[in-house]
Structures are given as structure tokens and as C-alpha cells.
Amino acid sequence: MTTFKLIINGKTLKGEITIEAVDAAEKEKIFKQYANDNGIDGEWTYDDATKTFTVTE
């Protein structure tokens, strides 16, 4: 398992979430669903070196 981080830079929601997953593709799906469930629609980036997804509205 690898630890992945999501950084949220939303208009109404900001924060960080850290979760373990098998791979980045699995985690991306979970993070995007979390963002969608919380009304966050923005630009996504991924840094493989730090295993960090960022979504910015």
C-alpha cells in the first residue's frame, strides 16, 4: 500500500486528506468522488514524486 494525499483548494472547502491505496488510479477515483460529493469542481493535478493530488477551484 502507498500513502496518497489530496490537497483541496476550493472556494468553500480547503484542507488535506491522506489515505492509503494500492495505486494512484484507485486513489484518483476515490478522491474525485469525494470532491464531487462535496461540490468541488476544479482543475486536478498529480505529483508522482510526492504522491499528491491537488484540486483547485
Rank of each mutant, 00 (worst) to 15 (best):
residue 1 M to F: 10
residue 1 M to Y: 13
residue 2 T to N: 06
residue 2 T to D: 06
residue 3 T to L: 11
residue 3 T to A: 05
residue 4 F to S: 05
residue 5 K to Y: 15
residue 5 K to W: 14
residue 6 L to S: 00
residue 6 L to G: 01
residue 6 L to T: 00
residue 7 I to F: 05
residue 7 I to G: 00
residue 8 I to V: 08
residue 9 N to M: 09
residue 10 G to L: 15
residue 12 T to L: 12
residue 13 L to R: 05
residue 13 L to A: 05
residue 13 L to Q: 07
residue 13 L to E: 06
residue 14 K to R: 08
residue 14 K to P: 07
residue 15 G to R: 14
residue 15 G to V: 15
residue 15 G to A: 15
residue 17 I to D: 00
residue 17 I to G: 01
residue 18 T to W: 14
residue 18 T to R: 09
residue 19 I to L: 10
residue 20 E to C: 14
residue 20 E to L: 14
residue 21 A to Q: 04
residue 22 V to P: 12
residue 22 V to R: 08
residue 22 V to E: 10
residue 22 V to N: 10
residue 23 D to N: 08
residue 24 A to R: 09
residue 24 A to V: 13
residue 24 A to Q: 12
residue 26 E to H: 08
residue 26 E to F: 09
residue 26 E to I: 08
residue 26 E to Y: 09
residue 27 K to D: 02
residue 27 K to T: 15
residue 27 K to M: 15
residue 27 K to S: 15
residue 28 E to F: 15
residue 28 E to I: 14
residue 29 K to T: 09
residue 29 K to F: 10
residue 30 I to Y: 11
residue 30 I to D: 03
residue 30 I to G: 02
residue 30 I to S: 02
residue 30 I to C: 15
residue 30 I to P: 01
residue 31 F to C: 10
residue 31 F to T: 01
residue 32 K to S: 05
residue 32 K to Q: 10
residue 32 K to H: 07
residue 33 Q to K: 11
residue 33 Q to P: 00
residue 33 Q to M: 09
residue 33 Q to C: 10
residue 34 Y to Q: 00
residue 34 Y to V: 05
residue 35 A to C: 13
residue 36 N to K: 14
residue 38 N to F: 15
residue 39 G to T: 02
residue 40 I to W: 13
residue 41 D to E: 12
residue 41 D to W: 14
residue 42 G to P: 02
residue 43 E to Y: 12
residue 43 E to K: 09
residue 44 W to K: 00
residue 44 W to E: 00
residue 44 W to C: 05
residue 44 W to G: 00
residue 46 Y to A: 00
residue 47 D to K: 00
residue 47 D to H: 03
residue 49 A to D: 08
residue 49 A to G: 04
residue 49 A to N: 08
residue 50 T to E: 03
residue 50 T to N: 05
residue 50 T to V: 01
residue 51 K to D: 07
residue 52 T to M: 03
residue 52 T to L: 01
residue 52 T to E: 02
residue 52 T to I: 05
residue 55 V to S: 02
residue 55 V to I: 10
residue 55 V to A: 02
residue 55 V to R: 05
residue 55 V to F: 13
residue 56 T to N: 07
residue 56 T to S: 06
residue 56 T to E: 04
